[in-house]
Structure formats: structure tokens, C-alpha cells
């Protein structure tokens, strides 16, 4: 069932790109782990948006199927990541990601 009034593929992709870049910028500039997690969510969401827009454009069901998987992945990832954040805070009593540099070469 085609919808005529859609804003166009390029617009969707650009929105997705903007959101992704914002998320990336946030990841790079924030030191708080919680904020970094949120930024990861932004990036994941931007990628999911891209799937849905492309799927809608081509009339393909795969786009939304991928969205479902992305949401699944995000849920699992957040669960693990939050557990790690809790442990990190428990051990170091801080949420500063820069303190977590024990793997330096």
C-alpha cells in the first residue's frame, strides 16, 4: 500500500546521519559512563532508523525485521553495560571512563 505523502528517502537518511553524528560526538566528548551509554543508544537508534527508512522505500519487510533485531540487541547490550557500570562504580567509586585505563600498553 504505497503512501504518496512521504518526505523522501534522502531526508530520512540525512536525519539518520545527523542523529548518528550527534551520538558519536557525545560518545567522544562525555566522560560520564551513563552519558556514554545514552549516546550509544542514540547511535543504535540512528542505525535502526536507517533500516526502517530504507525498508519502507523499497517496500521490503527486511528493514523492520532488522529493526526488531536491533532493538533486541540494544536491550541485551544495555543490560550488560548497566551491570558493568554498576560494577565499575562499585569498585572505583566514580563514573569517569578515563579512570578505566588499566589496559594501557
Amino acid at each position: 500500500m504505497p503512501i504518496e505523502t512521504a518526505p523522501g528517502l534522502e531526508a530520512g537518511i540525512m536525519l539518520s546521519s545527523i542523529l548518528f553524528c550527534l551520538g558519536l560526538a557525545g560518545l567522544m566528548m562525555r566522560r560520564n559512563v551513563i552519558f556514554m551509554l545514552m549516546c550509544v543508544e542514540i547511535c543504535t537508534n540512528a542505525a535502526a532508523l536507517m533500516f526502517v527508512v530504507a525498508g519502507a522505500h523499497w517496500g521490503n519487510v527486511d528493514g523492520q525485521v532488522m529493526f526488531v533485531f536491533v532493538v533486541t540487541l540494544a536491550a541485551a547490550e544495555v543490560a550488560i553495560a548497566l551491570a558493568l557500570v554498576l560494577q565499575f562504580y562499585h569498585r572505583k567509586h566514580t563514573v569517569d571512563i578515563d579512570q578505566l585505563n588499566e589496559l594501557r600498553g
Binding site: L24, L27, M36, I97, N101, L103, R104, G105
Partner: peptide, 18 residues
């Protein structure tokens, strides 16, 4: 050189990705 780049800073790695 390489171990200097391997400084354990996650944000630094991210920046390298970018």
C-alpha cells in the same frame, strides 16, 4: 609508538575510529 597509542582511554580509541 604503538603502545603510546594503546593508552587505555576508551574515548581516545573512539576518536581513532572516527
Amino acid at each position: 609508538l604503538l603502545s603510546a597509542s594503546q593508552n587505555g582511554q576508551v574515548r581516545w580509541y573512539l576518536t581513532s575510529f572516527a
